[in-house]
């Protein structure tokens, strides 16, 4: 009996059609890129018993286990139940059959830099928010890439995603506590945007130039700079790689709260549903925005969103990037 597969179903179950006939590779999601070590033995066991004994660590912070025979998919799906429970169901993700493996693979693993679990620069707990986003959008077949980064250093490369979330600190200044050492001023000039100036022994901030990196808080010896306990984020949109027009994501919203981020992402799924070109095998969201124009996207994305007083919305976005079809290596006559 020949191997008869519905490849579309296989792919939606997070298994790959690989170059090696008869063999597949399973992708394990790790929302927020952080997991308890107790799940690793399961991954190891699958790799050693069903796969070729190796594990690939994906760019999106998942695990890919290659060399698995297609026949073993069901058995493996039962084996990964604790991972699906521990990393998805426990955080409120709805998956009807926890023994059936992953119900979708279009929306990729939500990745995150290590955030304030460890990093001093981080402005929030990235994994926590990643899990909330996962709950809001997974399972979903639409092809969307999301990553969260704790600060504008952007170690996770949020600028390469459809949605990149960057933590922003609303830094607040208590002039009484300031001893005029100028550490914050010099550092902001050197490492950030030069939003701070020093006058008459105290510091002034140009709010328009402040990107909320929080470095001034880190540098201040006396706690004159502190963070507003209320958290803010910047939302970058529609960055991508690919074969047409690679480009960096650009800021769409600044100084918005967590609820806004989640709502805008959810709204975008409705927007995709309405505008996607179903004649294509899968159209990435960035290309849909290219077709409809930014304003149509913007209207959809901000539907029923209540923006706070500090929020800023981009008026227009010039994405640029570059196009392969007219790149610098092509001569006129070609």
């Amino acid at each position: 009996m020949g191997l008869d597969l519905n490849t579309k179903k296989v792919k939606k179950n997070a298994y790959r059609i690989t170059k090696e006939r008869g063999k597949t590779a399973l992708r394990i999601r790790v929302p927020g890129g952080h997991l308890e070590a107790k799940y690793l033995p399961i991954i190891k066991e699958i790799a050693e018993e069903y796969g070729n004994g190796t594990i690939h660590i994906t760019i999106r912070q998942g695990f890919e286990i290659p060399g698995i025979p297609f026949e073993k998919m069901e058995e493996i799906n039962r084996k990964i139940r604790p991972i699906i429970e521990g990393l998805e169901l426990d955080y409120g993700v709805k998956i009807d059959d926890p023994e059936g493996g992953y119900p979708a693979a279009g929306t990729r693993n939500v990745s995150a830099c290590i955030g304030n679990k460890v990093c001093r620069y981080a402005n929030y707990e990235t994994t926590e928010l990643a899990r909330k986003i996962e709950k809001a959008i997974y399972p979903n077949h639409y092809h969307v890439k999301i990553a969260l980064t704790g600060c504008p250093n952007d170690c996770i490369k949020a600028h390469m995603q459809d949605f990149g979330i960057v933590g922003m600190a609303d830094t607040q200044y208590d002039s009484y506590r300031c001893i005029g050492c100028e550490a914050c001023v010099k550092n902001c000039k050197k490492r950030a945007t030069g939003a701070l100036t020093f006058k008459n022994g105290k510091v002034k901030k140009d709010e328009r130039r402040c990107i909320g990196c929080g470095e001034c808080v880190l540098k201040c010896p006396t706690g004159a700079w502190t963070r507003n306990p209320k958290k803010f984020y910047k939302l970058l949109i529609m960055g991508r790689t690919g074969k047409k027009n690679p480009r960096l994501a650009k800021p769409f919203l600044e100084w918005v709260d967590e609820d806004t981020i989640i709502k805008v992402i959810k709204n975008t799924y409705e927007y995709i549903d309405k505008y996607i070109d179903r004649s294509l095998p899968k159209e990435h969201v960035g290309y849909i925005v290219d077709r409809t124009g930014f304003n149509v996207f913007k209207e959809y994305a901000l539907k029923d969103v209540e923006l706070g007083p500090k929020a800023k919305v981009a008026e227009y976005i010039d994405f640029r990037g570059y196009k392969y079809e007219k790149d610098a290596f092509m001569k006129e006559e070609e």
Partner: peptide, 15 residues
């Protein structure tokens, strides 16, 4: 305790 006013995000300052 000054909640979430520490040097790092989500840390408190005690002064």
């Amino acid at each position: 305790r000054f909640e979430k006013r520490g040097t790092f995000s989500d840390t408190d300052m005690i002064r």
